[in-house]
Simulated assay, not measured.
Amino acid sequence: MDLEQRILSFGNIVMDGIYHVNELPVNNEKVFAHQVNWAPGGTAVHFANQSAKIGTRASVLGWVGNDSIGIQLLQLLELNGVESSLHHIFNAQTPTSIIMVDDYGEKAVVLSPPMEESRLPAPEEVALYDLQEINHLHTHLFLKPYVDSLLRECRKLGISSSLDIEALSVKSWGVEGVKDSIALATIIFVNESALHYLSPLAMSIEKSLLDLYNLGPDIIICMRGKSGCVVKSEQGMWSYPSIEVATSNSLAAGDIFASVFMNRYVGGATINEAICYATAASAVAISRSSIAVHYPTLKEIEDMLHGKGQRLLDESRG
């Protein structure tokens, strides 16, 4: 991967506390964790950490508080090789999340309140970040006015952009609001539940993807977990299987998939090649650790692809 290639991720920055438990608790039940791990989290952070792990010059843009957690986040990102442009918001708590992961890889998440939007700089100020120094922007709809401002600026400058959409984004911003953002981005990553909210009357995933593709992006990728993914571009529509592995922890698997896809694609790979690498990366990520997010190296990805992922390679070539 070319270190001159620079990918910027923008989004919510949090400190994750990951608790490994035998089973997720039910109402009024108390459970003890076997292990606990604290590490930087959030879509933008996971995307940037994975980019740095496979050799890209990765940057992350967002906000932290001026508390001890915010300071730790900056230090940990630096250790991971990520260039941080995290602006400190004084007298504000850095967001945190508590994530419980059970022995089957299932999880439950509790998020702290987000930073008050009134404390943040205006969206237009965020768009003044020197985007001309980057090759690609990746973001998600955590604060729509800020995301839209950056996406518009990228479009104006001719810089490619990708947008990650989850069901919560659609519930928060509404179908039409999300569709407006989709029209600004180059590449869309969407999961099945979000796709259903965006196109509830469609009779198939393929029809839903076509509806979103007609809004203007170049590529739409529906990530379906163990069912693989479906991709729509000007070249057509294809389904790809997942790689079967035992799941230890599915945390950040979608962010890792998106990061590896974008790094390969921006680096000159075909859509097909980028999807294969991304699928292998997510398979490595979910099968390595029950207590922490595992960011695969390029060697681990290629070993998975040419091992358990051989079926994926064969079917993609066919």
Score class of each variant (00 low, 15 high):
residue 189 F to K: 15
residue 52 A to D: 05
residue 169 S to F: 14
residue 98 I to R: 12
residue 224 R to S: 09
residue 270 T to S: 12
residue 317 R to P: 02
residue 6 R to L: 04
residue 304 M to A: 04
residue 12 N to I: 13
residue 317 R to L: 12
residue 143 L to D: 06
residue 179 K to P: 08
residue 7 I to L: 11
residue 248 S to F: 11
residue 11 G to K: 03
residue 297 T to W: 03
residue 255 D to F: 01
residue 26 V to D: 10
residue 84 S to C: 15
residue 157 L to H: 00
residue 197 Y to D: 15
residue 266 V to H: 05
residue 99 I to W: 03
residue 270 T to W: 02
residue 116 E to D: 14
residue 215 L to N: 09
residue 307 G to A: 13
residue 255 D to K: 04
residue 91 N to D: 15
residue 11 G to D: 02
residue 176 E to G: 06
residue 171 K to H: 12
residue 282 S to K: 01
residue 233 S to A: 12
residue 241 P to H: 12
residue 136 H to V: 00
residue 249 N to L: 08
residue 302 E to Y: 05
residue 105 G to K: 03
residue 118 S to H: 12
residue 93 Q to S: 15
residue 219 I to F: 04
residue 94 T to Y: 09
residue 93 Q to A: 15
residue 300 E to R: 01
residue 314 D to L: 10
residue 75 Q to G: 11
residue 206 E to G: 06
residue 96 T to M: 14
residue 120 L to Q: 01
residue 49 N to C: 10
residue 98 I to D: 14
residue 209 L to Q: 08
residue 153 E to I: 00
residue 49 N to P: 00
residue 217 P to R: 06
residue 276 C to K: 14
residue 90 F to N: 11
residue 44 A to G: 08
residue 265 Y to E: 01
residue 102 D to I: 07
residue 42 G to V: 04
residue 200 P to W: 10
residue 242 S to N: 12
residue 233 S to K: 11
residue 186 T to W: 06
residue 269 A to Q: 09
residue 17 G to A: 04
residue 247 T to C: 13
residue 209 L to V: 03
residue 260 V to A: 06
residue 20 H to A: 13
residue 249 N to A: 05
residue 172 S to Y: 05
residue 151 L to F: 01
residue 176 E to A: 11
residue 175 V to S: 14
residue 271 I to W: 02
residue 193 S to W: 08
residue 74 L to R: 14
residue 263 N to A: 14
residue 123 P to I: 09
residue 161 S to R: 01
residue 126 V to H: 03
residue 148 D to T: 00
residue 95 P to C: 08
residue 192 E to Y: 12
residue 25 P to S: 13
